[in-house]
């Protein structure tokens, strides 16, 4: 579904990604791990088209998407849940959900279904986005991405700063979403969360992939766990 081949990326003059290759298949949950500054967020921003395209190719459903504007990439069926959640503070919860909603390939997600899945959001439908708690904002950001009816959802550290119980709830929702046929690419600092939901993992270090494999393989690789994940 999504494939990166030897992707390089730059912030101004600094060279952040040094040839990242990774792949997300249909209905797969893939995690992107690594220490701060390893290039995880940069990888997501490169996929979403927020960075000037560098060397390497990014393809989504066999179409090259490097150089396309972010909104075009999103409209091809990619749901984005940014770091810091990106809630529009001046929009109500309901406006946040509907402002960009689209039918996608099958229109499976509707506002009604979202409210069934996230009853908290229905209770707060008329609140401004800025009035929500951190956990509610994260739910809203994920719900908003689902209403784009994506085939792939990309999340940047959804568990950051949230209580363990809410993290659980979010992970359950992502498993649920995958069961509906949506692929997931998730950047995580929380190794346990990643091991719980992802089928495969990539570990980044200094802008390169230094490990890729299943949860079992990752659990067995003492060096990677110690050196790059601080376990």
């Amino acid at each position: 579904m999504l494939r990166l081949e030897n992707v390089h990326a730059y912030y101004g003059l600094s060279h952040i990604l040094h040839g990242v290759s990774l792949e997300v298949g249909d209905r797969e949950i893939v995690s992107l791990l690594g220490r701060n500054g390893a290039g995880k967020t940069t990888t997501l921003l490169a996929i979403m088209g927020f960075l000037e395209p560098g060397p390497g190719t990014i393809t989504y459903r066999d179409r090259r998407i490097g150089g396309l504007a972010p909104y075009r990439i999103s409209r091809m069926g990619v749901g984005f849940v940014p770091q810091e959640r990106g809630i529009f503070g001046n929009l109500t919860v309901e406006e946040n959900l509907t402002v960009a909603a689209r039918r996608g390939s099958n229109g499976a997600w509707t506002l009604k279904r979202i409210y069934e899945l996230f009853p908290r959001l229905r209770e707060r439908a008329a609140f401004r986005g800025s009035k929500l708690s951190g956990g509610e904002q994260q739910m809203l950001s994920i719900a908003r991405a689902l209403l784009l009816n994506p085939d792939l959802i990309i999340l940047d550290e959804p568990s950051e700063g949230l209580a363990p119980l809410i993290v659980q709830e979010i992970l359950d929702i992502l498993l649920n979403v995958r069961a509906e046929g949506v692929a997931v690419l998730i950047v995580e600092q929380n190794l346990r969360a990643a091991l719980r939901i992802a089928d495969r993992h990539y570990v980044l270090s200094k802008g390169k992939v230094c490990f890729s494999g299943t949860s079992e393989q990752l659990n067995a690789d003492e060096t990677i766990l110690k050196q790059h994940l601080g376990v």
Binding site: P70, G79, F88, V99, A100, R102, L148
Partner: peptide, 11 residues
């Protein structure tokens, strides 16, 4: 509010 996120969700 947030031009970047607006682009990222397809506006």
């Amino acid at each position: 509010d947030d031009t970047r996120t607006a682009m990222g969700i397809g506006l």
